[in-house]
């Protein structure tokens, strides 16, 4: 089992390294990630949302639907823990 795990981990790592070969260098300001969608956030966010912190503006406005999902994830986890752990507290043991 451990050998399989080791091989799987190494293969995954090798694949990921293989993929990085054609990636833009670290910190390159002209990489696609920094030049396609995000410039508009930096240019417009403050004007449109009146928020100086752009991360906040994107989090709570442009992509607020993700943030709602994030809140729901926490709610789900909380209810899940209640579902799993609550009953036993009343009468110990099953």
């Amino acid at each position: 089992m451990k050998v399989i795990a080791l091989i799987a981990a190494l293969m995954t790592g090798a694949l990921l390294i293989y993929g990085t070969e054609e990636m833009p260098d670290w910190g390159d300001p002209n990489s696609p990630a920094s030049s396609h969608v995000s410039p508009k956030y930096i240019q417009e966010a403050t004007e449109k949302t009146a928020t100086p912190n752009i991360v906040t503006a994107v989090l709570a406005d442009y992509r607020s639907y993700d943030t709602m999902g994030e809140v729901v994830v926490v709610f789900t986890a909380g209810i899940g823990c209640i579902l799993m752990l609550r009953k036993k507290r009343k009468g110990e043991g099953d």
């Binding site: 729901v72 789900t76 986890a77 899940g80 799993m84």
Partner: peptide
């Protein structure tokens, strides 16, 4: 969201 609720259920 679906996975977490699934794990708990």
């Amino acid at each position: 969201i679906s996975a977490l609720s699934c794990y708990a259920l």
